[in-house]
């Protein structure tokens, strides 16, 4: 049973030793979470003429957004640092690993629900509006997208290799595999950006297209692939953190759930991409 679950029978010598120390990070991290939305609103230019006037200056907005972003990352680092430090005083690490496994699985369920709404939009529009789709002759999709997809799928395979090598204690090979996984993911992200740039140049934007099906499709395309790219980026940050900790000498023992969680997340990103690829490029 868990570290938090007291055993029945004799009393623990010091029950206070089960009580985790307090943490300032959950409170601090809310400061950037106030600052960043105001930064976004300010950059969008919607705060003009409001009593919050000084905030409307785009430069202030940029500071709020960037500063908020930096502080957000700093808080996350502080939070992770505290967790890693506290591991040494934790009572029942095995149970914590089980808790974390369930956490990651449930979190991914929630992510599936969010992507579900996007897919729901696509298929509802496909069914209702025959003009919902790319404009013919725009060279939408093509070999570059196929290559990007192939690379992302390969990175899932290398990620799985890395996980198994880590389990087998072959740290050297695992390091190489993590590196390849990150590299492939970064290339995928770059290709997505390139694809976006190409499409925007060819006039594949909601504003430039005829209002109606094509414009709505373009909007949904950028939202769907953009939301996915955001997840790829998050996955890369997770993998990068795992790689850094591996370099720093972590995961040499039996426990390496952070690495497992990162690979799970990576597989999730992969699965969603396959579905998104079919929806965006194949179905129309």
């Amino acid at each position: 049973m868990s570290d938090h679950t007291p055993s029945s029978g004799t009393a623990h010598a010091d029950p206070m030793s089960h009580v985790p120390p307090g943490s300032i990070w959950p409170l601090l991290v809310t400061i950037p979470l106030v600052a960043m939305p105001f930064g976004v609103l300010s950059l969008l230019g919607v705060l003009k003429g409001s009593p919050v006037g000084p905030l409307a200056d785009p430069q202030v907005g940029l500071v709020l957004l960037m500063g908020g972003g930096v502080m957000f990352l700093y808080c996350l680092m502080g939070w992770c640092h505290q967790i890693i430090r506290e591991k040494t005083i934790a009572h029942d690490v095995v149970q914590q690993q089980k808790d974390l496994q369930l956490f990651v699985l449930l979190f991914l369920c929630g992510e599936f629900a969010a992507f579900g709404a996007i897919f729901g939009f696509f298929f509802h529009r496909f069914a209702q509006d025959p003009s919902f789709g790319p404009v013919p002759g725009m060279h939408f999709g093509g070999p570059l997208v196929a290559l990007a997809t192939f690379l992302l799928l390969s990175s899932s395979v290398t990620g799985e290799f890395a996980h198994h090598l880590l389990q087998a204690g072959r740290i050297g090979l695992a390091r190489i595999m993590f590196f390849i996984t990150i590299l492939l993911g970064a290339i995928f992200l770059g290709m997505t950006g390139h694809e976006w740039g190409e499409l925007i140049q060819r006039g594949f934007t909601p504003g430039a297209l005829a209002e109606g099906g094509p414009a709505a499709f373009a909007a949904a395309f950028y939202t769907g692939t953009g939301f996915h790219a955001l997840h790829v980026a998050t996955g890369l940050v997770l993998l990068f953190m795992v790689a850094m900790r591996l370099e720093a000498g972590a995961f040499r023992g039996k426990r390496h759930f952070a690495a497992v969680a990162a690979t799970w997340y990576w597989h999730f990103v992969d699965v969603v991409w396959v579905a998104l690829f079919i929806t965006v490029y194949v179905v129309p």
Binding site: H4, T5, V19, W25, P26, V29, T30, L33, D99, F103
Partner: peptide, 19 residues
């Protein structure tokens, strides 16, 4: 139980309501 499974995340969930 002695606490929730993720005590810090629990606190974060509360403080999120403030922003």
């Amino acid at each position: 139980a002695r606490d929730m499974a993720f005590p810090k995340m629990n606190a974060f969930g509360f403080w999120l309501l403030v922003p």
